[in-house]
Amino acid sequence: MKKGIKIIFWSLVAVNVIFFAVMRSGLFDTRQILTAQPELLADKIILLKESQSAANLAQSTPAITVPAEPVADVPTVAQADTMSCYEWGDFSGVELERASNALNKLQLGNKLTQRDTEHSIGFWVYIAPLKDKAAVAQKVAQLKARGVTEYFVVQEAGEWLDAISLGMFKTREAAQKFLEGLNAKDVRSAKVGERASKTKTTTFVMSGLDAAKNEKLLAMQKDFQGTELKRVACH
Score class of each variant (00 low, 15 high):
Arg98Met: 15
Phe169Thr: 04
Thr113Gly: 07
Ser120Ile: 03
Leu96Thr: 07
Leu96Pro: 00
Phe152Val: 01
Glu118Arg: 03
Gly122Ile: 00
Asn183Pro: 06
Lys170Asn: 14
Ser120Gln: 03
Ala157Trp: 14
Asn101Leu: 11
Ser100Asn: 13
Thr171Tyr: 02
Lys105Met: 04
Ser165His: 03
Leu179Gly: 05
Lys133Cys: 01
Leu166Ala: 07
Glu159Trp: 01
Leu108Lys: 08
Tyr126Glu: 02
Lys111Tyr: 10
Lys139Thr: 14
Ser120Lys: 15
Ala157Val: 07
Lys139Trp: 07
Leu182Met: 04
Val192Gly: 02
Glu156Thr: 12
Leu112Cys: 06
Val154Phe: 04
Gln142Arg: 12
Ser165Tyr: 14
Thr117Phe: 01
Gln155Ala: 13
Gly109Asp: 09
Val153Met: 02
Ser165Gln: 08
Lys191Gln: 12
Leu112Phe: 09
Glu95Thr: 08
Glu159His: 10
Ser120Cys: 08
Phe152Trp: 02
Glu180Gln: 15
Lys105Asp: 06
Ala174Tyr: 05
Gln176Ser: 13
Ala141Leu: 00
Leu108Asn: 14
Tyr151Gln: 09
Asn104Lys: 07
Leu103Met: 09
Leu179Gln: 11
Tyr151Gly: 00
Leu182Tyr: 10
Asp132Pro: 05
Gln155Met: 13
Leu103Arg: 15
Leu96Glu: 08
Asn101Cys: 02
Gly109Gln: 11
Lys105Thr: 15
Asp162Thr: 09
Ala175Gly: 01
Phe123Cys: 02
Leu161Asn: 01
Asn110Pro: 10
Ile127Asn: 11
Gly181Asp: 13
Arg195His: 15
Asp132Glu: 11
Glu150Cys: 01
Lys131Asn: 15
Ala157Asp: 08
Gln176Lys: 09
Trp160Gly: 04
Tyr126Pro: 00
Trp160Gln: 14
Trp160Ser: 09
Gly147Phe: 01
Lys191Leu: 05
Asn183Met: 04
Glu180Ile: 01
Lys185Trp: 09
Gln114Gly: 01
Leu106Gly: 14
Leu166Thr: 13
Phe152Pro: 00
Glu97Ser: 14
Leu112Asn: 06
Leu182Ala: 06
Lys111Ile: 03
Leu103Pro: 09
Lys185Leu: 06
Tyr151Leu: 03
Ala190His: 00
Phe152Tyr: 13
Asp132Asn: 08
Val140Trp: 01
Phe178Glu: 00
Arg98Glu: 14
Gln142Glu: 15
Tyr151Ser: 02
Ser189His: 06
Leu112Arg: 09
Leu106Val: 05
Tyr126Gln: 03
Ile121Arg: 12
Arg172Phe: 07
Lys191Glu: 10
Asp132His: 10
Ala184Ser: 09
Arg195Pro: 04
